[in-house]
Design a protein around this nucleic acid. Structure first.
Lengths: 345, 345
DNA sequence: GAATTTCTGATGTACGTAAATCAAAAATGT
DNA sequence: ACATTTTTGATTTACGTACATCAGAAATTC
């Protein structure tokens, strides 16, 4: 049987109350006594039963998730993962509130952060827009002792406790290598399609991609970046124009959302098989396009992992506990038509 | 506040004891009363506090992990993940025993399974060798009410409760597509290096790979499969002979272990840059080879995920609970030199 | 050595559930 | 109407920890 507080008390020859004082470092214990107890804890290998402790404390964690609104499939998937986490609230002792904000809007985000602050939660997870005023708003939260985790898109310099998302520089590099190798010897320009340069994740992906392409595949020049605002209709228009303008286009790297428009444009122009296309995020649209061959590879971040990780980290930070960073790292999934996961309901 | 058993009792107008009888379906409750209680449970939205219930029950889960011995890096990594889980035993209420067995040895595995059976654990996780006598031994465990999960390599037809591992057919197909596209237009034979055809995972990978190569890249004929027994020394010898024999070799798909030997042979013959090499499992050796360019891509299964998933499933099955299969699916990681995770201690 | 301050022990309640016991009530059979 | 069986209630103990209170012991100060 694993040792309990009673065993420690017996071993150290003190009362339960004293053990409790040591364990929860309450005042009123002489150093000699404290040492005795601590030795007993070590020799018995005592570990606090967290479940029992939480039960006794009645601890719970009010959390706020700030997510971009709009019909971006990835973000809606993220939201549904948060809702799934809300369904688990009872057993995880969390109380989650979702705050929607317009996408790519720093001002609205600042407001949402301030609203979140007024709710006095234990922690806040936020899909960040990279702007100084947002960073300041995050700092204010932290000053109030509220843990903050950036989700999907990071916000360096804001003092956030943790970033729950993929290494987007690495993702961009990976896309670069895949693009270079998939297009093979075939020379020709490569187009890059982004959502907005206001968010950190898109900027990082672009940087990684351009670095690798320049260093390793100089035969494929990059065209100027196209910004599609993650809007399918706009993306479709831009891509159609692109394909007609650049007759020998070798590849397209779509590093943001709006894949519906990309796929529609490629299929309508009939060039989908000759242009190597690499996109981000596995959604019903990108999945279908992968299967049909319109898209050659999809880089994905698992929204479920990100949400669960964010919650774990927020809870730990709220309790002042350390986080095993390696364990919370979010992997970049690479999907080809061959390794698509089974569709779920 | 979330409702408790007391609230149900009050709402239903019955005593705590009756609520307990209903919740844990003990006998001695009339149907009308049972209905009243169940309605109260639904209308209040009661969910059992699992932590408190486990505390009260003093439930714990003795588990046995049967793992191949030998210096296979992947298997040693798997074992260290199991040991990490043992360190968490206290908080997870598990008691884990590791049983080592010689690799690829059906007889030894049968014996280990019977030893595991005598320990009367709640569940057993086993890296299976695909043989009828092993399947029978697994069935005997299940007859005793012991949950069985196959780990890494599956055992269809054994009635195991669950398989904690990747879809190896998909992995093989993925390797095929990568191989075909990475070698590009370049024609030339492709070699396949396996560990042993006695394990299901290797057979599945081979099948997926050959299917894709035959259907989509007929310009690259496959050479007869080489079996290296996951033994670095033997693998090195075989690969050196191979490279000298096949002067225009375009690629090597190593679907088993023993990557050390593969890398050594490729580097010594100086053909590492011209032969497209795809291997399995991220180990210190394959990681270094990826970085140096000797290996072009590594398909990986996250041993930590597999072990944690196996434990979750075993606990659930032991309690007769359902498992959300989609949630327990193990992904195939694809690593290029660009998206290697940070090395951990 | 007395007064004070600082520690320590003893004890009880609580968290939400499980499980057992025994008495009382209700339903059933004859 | 009685005995019998089945169902229900009331109450208690337990799990391992947190937290509070109060009395008493030990150490410190003067």
């Amino acid at each position: 049987m694993r040792p309990t507080v009673h065993d420690i008390a017996a071993k150290a020859g003190v009362s339960l109350a004293t053990v409790d004082r040591v364990l929860n470092n309450r005042p009123g214990v002489r150093n000699v006594t404290r040492d005795k107890v601590e030795r007993a804890i070590v020799t018995l290998g005592y570990v606090r039963d967290v479940a029992a402790a939480n039960l006794a404390k009645g601890r719970n964690y009010p959390l706020v998730f700030i997510l971009p609104a709009g019909d971006n499939s990835f973000m809606r998937g993220l939201e549904s993962e948060v809702r799934a986490a809300m369904a688990r609230s009872a057993s995880e002792r969390t109380q989650i509130t979702i705050l929607p904000v317009p996408a790519f809007d720093a001002q609205a985000l600042v407001q949402a952060l301030s609203e979140a602050r007024q709710r006095r939660p234990a922690g806040v997870a936020v899909v960040a827009v990279d702007a100084p005023e947002v960073a300041e708003a995050v700092m204010r939260l932290r000053d109030d002792g509220i843990a903050v985790v950036t989700l999907v898109s990071d916000l360096p310099g804001s003092g956030r406790d943790h970033f729950a998302g993929v290494d987007n520089l690495a993702a961009g590099r990976t896309a670069g290598t895949l693009m270079g190798r998939f297009t093979g010897g075939r020379a020709g320009p490569i187009a890059v399609l982004a959502g907005s340069m206001l968010v950190r994740d898109h900027r990082d992906r672009l940087e990684g991609f351009t670095t690798v392409m320049a260093e390793e595949f100089p035969a494929c020049p990059l065209l100027p970046v196209i910004e599609g605002q993650d809007d399918p209709a706009l993306v479709e228009k831009l891509v159609r124009a692109l394909v007609e303008r650049e007759r020998d286009l070798a590849g397209i790297y779509s590093l943001g959302a709006g894949n519906r428009g990309l796929v529609a444009a490629l299929e309508k122009t009939g060039k989908s098989k000759t242009i190597c296309t690499i996109a981000h995020e596995l959604t019903p649209h990108s999945r279908a396009a992968l299967r049909s061959g319109t898209i050659d590879a999809v880089l994905n971040q698992d929204a479920g992992h990100e949400v669960r990780s964010a919650i774990r980290v927020l809870k730990a930070k709220a309790d002042g506990l350390a986080v095993i960073e390696a364990q919370e790292r979010i992997r970049i999934d690479i999907f080809l038509k061959d390794n698509l996961p089974i569709e779920q309901a």
